[in-house]
Amino acid sequence: MATSLLPVSGQALDAQSLVAKIQKLCPAAQLRPDCDRPAVKVPLAHWPVLAQQLFASADLLFDLLETHTAIDWVQTGQIELVYVLTSLQCGHHLTVFVDVARDNPVAPSLCAVWPIAQWQEREVFDLFGVHYTDHPDLRRLFLDDDWQGFPLRKDYADDFMLERPS
């Protein structure tokens, strides 16, 4: 018998206190101001530990990894990993941004915290070429196994791409 996660066991935090709480857990985390929802930028090295804390911490309880994707900032040479987290138990959201180097994109896998990350990370690997360490099954998800390149990168080009008529 499945146990219900409801009624809500936690208290929804507002943006300021949420960010403050996270900065207490990880002082290196910075508020990302150009985002419409509570968002923090976390250094790569701190991220696995913080992820675990976000999941387990009694007043945060981010149980749902709503989505995980990446942004290719070709000018700055970074690929920015985006984690959209939701707490179904508390009712608050958080977006976490983590930078990895574009020429050597390696990030820790979060499958152990949020199992759905396994496939979301595979998608990011497939389309952006980010390598996740400790991922149980890091293969292409949508494209052929022998596909060259990562299509969602900004500089991607292949022989079959149609030019958009201008």
Partner: peptide, 8 residues
């Protein structure tokens, strides 16, 4: 979610 973040 804080009030100022609610979509108008």
């Amino acid at each position: 979610m804080s009030d100022d973040l609610v979509h108008p």
